[in-house]
């Protein structure tokens, strides 16, 4: 059973930070609530009582997003549905519509925030891999000496382990800031046990940019989720592809490598196999999203020969 004594819905950042500063240890910040509320069930947290809940979803500064100087500022209350429905976000974050459509369902996405997903830091969380690929940073704010102070950390440093982040008491996530990459092709691969309301066993995000000849990888971004305690960015494979002529064989070769990075405790063989196929499919789909033709079965066979 989910119970609480008091519930605060601050409207401004300052108010929110003031409340955060005095939040008791067993109090909790809540945004969409889609991780916190279902946790209070038998078989998970059981009966969970919060003396204080601090709901940050109505904070004015946390609403919406802004795109400036090649970076997107995704404010903390931005729900997942925006990545599907907002044309500007779709264009600038090309791997996010795929991530969002695979994420929970339409109703959860209206509530669930990207910030909450990253703070929750589940190894199976879907937001982290595409955000890693987009060079995301997490902006944190707190009150110190009555002043709002902020710090920014790369996402890879923010998440330190399953369910663990560097977030400190009194601190709130104010925004996630990532690259805006219009003109890139993006894709998102995911497998779980079904096709809706599904938690990732493995997921992969890719972003690809073609050079003006359209035959060369100008830029490649790759990240994996679900296969290790923290999301993984595949810098070496990106490096291997960047500046190279696009061939199916090259993509196939590149996708063999990351299987070794699978560091999960369960389903290791399964994940290794999927990772290989997913890296390949993620790049291929991202290429298709840039306008490249869909590879045929014959291409695949040749590449894998």
């Amino acid at each position: 059973m989910f119970t609480y004594d008091s519930y605060h819905l601050p409207r401004t950042l300052r108010e929110a930070l003031e409340l955060a500063a005095t939040l008791p240890a067993d109090g909790k910040v809540i945004a969409g609530g889609t991780d916190i509320v279902p946790y209070a069930r038998e078989g998970r947290g059981g009966d969970v009582h919060f003396p204080v809940l601090l709901d940050v979803s109505k904070v004015a500064e946390f609403q919406g997003y802004a795109i400036e100087n090649g970076r997107a500022r995704l404010n903390a209350a931005l729900p997942y549905q925006a990545f599907l429905e907002d044309p500007v976000l779709r264009e600038n974050l090309p791997c996010m519509p795929g991530c969002a459509i695979w994420f929970a369902d339409d109703q959860i996405r209206e509530q669930a925030t990207l910030a909450g997903n990253l703070v929750n830091a589940s190894p199976a969380g879907d937001g982290a891999p595409p955000m890693m690929a987009l060079n995301a940073e997490v902006e944190l704010a707190r009150l110190s000496g009555g002043e709002v102070t902020t710090r920014r950390l790369p996402l890879g440093e923010f998440i330190t382990g399953p369910g663990r982040t560097v977030l400190e008491p009194g601190e709130l996530v104010t925004a996630v800031i990532c690259d805006a990459l219009p003109g890139y092709g993006g894709s998102f691969q995911k497998v779980g046990q079904r096709r809706s309301l599904v938690i990732s066993r493995v997921c992969a995000a890719a972003l690809v940019k073609l050079d003006p000849t359209r035959h060369v990888f100008e830029d490649v971004r790759l990240a994996l989720g679900g296969i290790a305690p923290v999301p993984l960015r595949l810098h070496d494979i990106e490096e291997m592809l960047r500046g190279k002529k696009i061939t199916r064989r090259l993509v196939a070769e590149a996708s063999v490598i990351p299987a070794d990075r699978v560091a999960s405790r369960t389903r290791v063989e399964y994940r290794r196999h999927v990772v290989r196929g997913f890296v390949e499919a993620a790049i291929e789909d991202a290429l298709v999203a840039c306008g490249a033709p869909v590879p045929s079965d014959r291409d695949r066979e040749e590449a894998h020969a």
Binding site: R41, R44, Q193
Partner: peptide
Amino acid sequence: PGFSKYILPT
């Protein structure tokens, strides 16, 4: 113990 672990067709 719940529908997040007991997987039903959607």
